[in-house]
Design a binder for these strands. Sequence first.
DNA 1: TCTGGGGTCCTAGGACCC
DNA 2: TCTGGGGTCCTAGGACCC
Length: 421
Amino acid sequence: MFALVDCNNFFASCEQVFAPHLRNRPLVVLSNNDGCVIARSKEAKALNIPMGAPLFKWRDLIKRHHIEVVSSNFALYVDMSARVVATLEELGYPLEIYSIDESFLSLDAQTEWHTFGTLIHQKVKRWTGLPTCVGIAPTKTLAKVANQRAKREPSLQNVCVFETAEACDPYLKGLPVEEIWGIGRRLAKQLQSYGIGTAYQLKETDDAWIRKKFSVTGLRTVWELRGTSCFDYEPEEEARKSVLKSRSFSRAVTSYEELQEAVSTFAGRCAEKLRKDGLCAGYLSLFISTSRFHPESYYANQSAFALPRRTAYTPEIIAHAKKALKQIFVPGLEYKRAGVILSDLAPAASSQFDLFCRNETKDEKKEELMRAVDQVNRLYGKGSLISAAEGLKKEWLATPQLCSHRYTTSWDELLTIDIDR
DNA sequence: TCTGGGGTCCTAGGACCC
DNA sequence: TCTGGGGTCCTAGGACCC
């Protein structure tokens, strides 16, 4: 049996933990550029503000209903997430972190499911202040279904258990296919065109047909709905396979120099992340694009290539990114977004030397330099020491206007309470 | 005027090999 | 006119997730 523990309205709830005046109020959390809504409190959801809603289109409604608005504060969310995980680990069951706000627990047959679910909810609430829902079922897909039901039906008091796949059937009959984990908008539309509209109908379809039309991915989902586990419990944290850094720009970027600075910044951040994880990359891709909301003038392109040798050395990666930019830059366009992806990752220790470049002492010096840079940035804060190629002004980078404090990760921003009032 | 960011997996098809 | 067969590897693109 699997338990899926999912924090309710995670980002919004994190904000509410430290700001009592935001509790029980409609609240939305904004994306990186304060551009659109990426999380909503229960009350904001009730006002039908959709996920991804562009802020400028919803300003009126937000004003009318006095909806609270905050910028996203990932330092806070990441730390709160770690606290939830630490709390769950105390339960003593094998745990798999699925996302920033969700974890699977692998339960044994002796567990009193419902009591256990309630215990989880209470414990996380008490230790972190965050509300959760718990779904328990024989497979991960069904645990997702159970969790979603617990969220939807308040009478269940945050916990929903399906002891067997069959116990799920009545609920699946009323569940639209697109609400199943792994069935997105595209697949749902296709399924509907074949007359498959509910989760139960999907569960009852023929294996061979599903395999042919929707590949093994679709087949696995069907089996999971029937109670046959296809997504195993995966205790080990998988080594990452790629690193990506990208941003939408705060305004249109037209000059090659400025775009080059942005691209260099992304490349630099990627390299930092690699070193933090003890990895180096063998493949780089760069993408740039204009606004996709102006289809008539839309331009998007990418350049990708294998690197001459695996590396995590910032100047080298920046140089490659610049080279990539040269290949796809078209002058005269208004660029709105760019990003760098590094892949073909391997542990730094195993990296091979290039046949034509095996000056080992030189490499040791490079590594030493990067260690020093990383240390300075750890001590004095991110971005204290950067490569000159990244530029200093970064006018393309939006600064969030409504960011809450990093209550749990910065000494300067601890919660303060005014006791005189 | 203003529209997120960071990931994973699967498949088809081309390049290349013998 | 007629032009092999079988395999692997790599990557782009498309789907999905939160």
